[in-house]
Computed example of a mutant assay.
Amino acid sequence: MSGPAPDRNGPLTRAASAIYWFVVVEVLWVLLTAPGFVAALFLARDASNLPLYALAAVPVGPATAAALFAWRVFLRERDPSPAHQFGRGLRLGWADALRSWVPALVALVVLGTNVAYAGAAGLAAPVVLLQVVLGVVVLLWAVRMLALASSFSFRWRDAARLGIYTLLNRPLVTLGMVSLLVLVAGLAVVTFDAVPVLLASVLTYFLARNENPVLDDVQRRFVAPSPPTSSSTTP
């Protein structure tokens, strides 16, 4: 005599599904970014290597956008296939992610080099502080652009304007992003560099939750609704 059928909506099933999602997204994110991180391990920690560190960080943009796409699906539908959703997000958003991420990396290299060699260049302390602030703003803008690229395909200049607008218009969400970036930096400093990488799926999950209100707002206010299909229109 067979026992009762397992409850597919029970707490244990949901917990197992969530753990599976975190593991799969983590593995895929690490696999996509591993070449850059491995290359970075062989670089000396010197400001002269900032361009090479930026080059190693290029895959982080598309990988993060793909993870954000997958987590957005998870938060809405609990799809049983995280690998499929991650791959779909990568396929749809990698170009838009690179178009925003690469210019941001270039800007961060320029600003970081200026700060690192501020003494040799004779830059005043207020100028150095301004460049640090600009670096933080560029990083916040870049992360917001990755979130937009994970769900939409805007022209670059439209996405850039939306990135700036939403940073200013949704200050609490922006503060949440700042908190996550501080957490990542703190983990890297207090522990070691690999810890944020090993927690990438958890960090991108919380980033996706943080960015959801902005993406929903952009969907409602700036994305035209899909036209009705012929089958749904009245003849």
Rank of each mutant, 00 (worst) to 15 (best):
Arg91Gly: 13
Arg91Ser: 11
Arg91His: 08
Arg91Glu: 07
Leu92Gln: 12
Ala97Phe: 10
Leu98Val: 13
Leu98Met: 14
Arg99Met: 10
Arg99Lys: 14
Ser100Glu: 11
Val102Phe: 06
Pro103Ser: 13
Ala104Leu: 08
Val106Tyr: 06
Leu108Tyr: 03
Val110Glu: 04
Leu111Asn: 01
Asn114Glu: 13
Asn114Gln: 14
Asn114His: 12
Asn114Pro: 02
Val115Thr: 10
Tyr117Asp: 09
Gly119Ala: 15
Ala120Thr: 13
Ala121Cys: 01
Leu123His: 11
Ala125Pro: 05
Val127Pro: 02
Val127Thr: 15
Val128Gln: 07
Val128Pro: 03
Leu130Ile: 06
Leu130Thr: 10
Val132Cys: 09
Val133Tyr: 07
Val133Trp: 09
Leu134Gln: 08
Leu139Ile: 01
Val143Ile: 12
Met145Phe: 02
Ala147Pro: 03
Leu148Val: 06
Leu148Thr: 05
Leu148Ser: 03
Ala149Asn: 04
Ser150Val: 03
Ser151Gly: 09
Phe152Gly: 05
Phe152Asp: 03
Phe154Leu: 12
Arg155Phe: 09
Arg157Phe: 11
Arg157Tyr: 09
Arg161Ile: 04
Leu162Phe: 11
Leu167Asn: 05
Leu168Lys: 00
Arg170Trp: 11
Arg170Gln: 14
Pro171Val: 14
Leu172Gln: 13
Thr174Cys: 13
Leu175Glu: 08
Gly176Gln: 07
Met177Leu: 14
Val178His: 09
Ser179Thr: 12
Ser179Met: 10
Leu183Ala: 15
Leu183Thr: 12
Val184Leu: 04
Val184His: 00
Ala185His: 00
Ala185Phe: 06
Leu187Tyr: 00
Leu187Asn: 01
Ala188Arg: 11
Val190Tyr: 12
Val190Gly: 09
Phe192Arg: 07
Ala194Asn: 02
Val195Met: 08
Pro196Gln: 07
Pro196Ala: 12
Val197Ala: 14
Val197Lys: 06
Val197Trp: 10
